[in-house]
Nucleic acid binder design. Sequence first.
DNA 1: ACCTGAACACCGTTCAAGT
DNA 2: ACCTGAACACCGTTCAAGT
Lengths: 192, 192
Amino acid sequence: MRADAVRNRHRILESAATALAESGPDVALEEIAARAGVGIGTLYRHFPDRFGLLVEVYRSELEALTSLGAELESSDDPGAALRQFLRANLEFSRRHRSLAADVIAAGIALQGDSAAVVSPCALICDRATELIERAQRAGAIRSDVDVEHVMRLVGGIAMATEDAATDPELSTRLLGLVLDGLQVGSATPPER
Amino acid sequence: MRADAVRNRHRILESAATALAESGPDVALEEIAARAGVGIGTLYRHFPDRFGLLVEVYRSELEALTSLGAELESSDDPGAALRQFLRANLEFSRRHRSLAADVIAAGIALQGDSAAVVSPCALICDRATELIERAQRAGAIRSDVDVEHVMRLVGGIAMATEDAATDPELSTRLLGLVLDGLQVGSATPPER
DNA sequence: ACCTGAACACCGTTCAAGT
DNA sequence: ACCTGAACACCGTTCAAGT
């Protein structure tokens, strides 16, 4: 890649980060380009779609989540490990609202994909899968749930608590309720 | 209201219903106006914001939900009554995706409001409150949850399962998990 | 009293021309 | 090989003029 292209790419990512922080998740791509001092076409050349740009902006955070997940896999309390990982995921989603839905959808769709470039989203879902299975083997959570259930619930909580009027602690509370539902013994018998 | 205004209002609502069904929840207001054979300004005169239009389009469905809630209040199984009401709410949200988030937010904000025109959304949340309290008095669900928790979780499930790729039965499954978490005895003790 | 639709603002996306 | 930004498409919203 040409030197000026590399520089432009960095500038765009920096401008995107500050623009997203200042103007919210729906900030116009044109504003990001303008802040970076590049044409809108240059932004599109580097990031063909908005989601791809956002993933790059938050790449380090996404990778940190993946690392946390990997570390938690050696916890001696698999139930607590899963809960901590989900809490961290929810916090991430709440920090960057616009990503919640797409990250989950993308992560689940691409999960375990062996393509050369694996999405950071898929890596997170891979860690979640492992933590869920470990917790299930330890008898810490019920065996009739899978990663899609769990991650969609976490994403749903993030989306449902997005509006500014929401008490910031509400999402934590809702996750707690969901986690209680994942507990072994919570399953309602069929003859409900 | 003048006769032609009444007719226009009806036409707009009819066009909106078919346009929403055919073109999805993000259909342009201009298309709705065009289908109704009125100018865009006329649409704005009758419905100052998109949400207000949608609530009117789905008013009969919203009222049916409220009626269902009221009927279920005399059920002799308050736990089952609440579950049925929440399932019906989730089905509504899934039928009309764009409303899920706003209905809940509006409903919770306006709940119990004694204003002359009470929003259909608030009436639903009022029914939910009653059903929750009844279920709690009957010992069917835990006492440390309120209507905001429950309705946001239902809305979150609707939003998190919006994408077309989602298995249609997934939302039912997720609601089941959440309902299990609301069961008495699901609460995790503090010394988690 | 109500309706019309041009006008304005804004954003996403593409692509011919330029370096 | 990459960049620019005009151009096009599209939608939301307002408001002066018309009936």
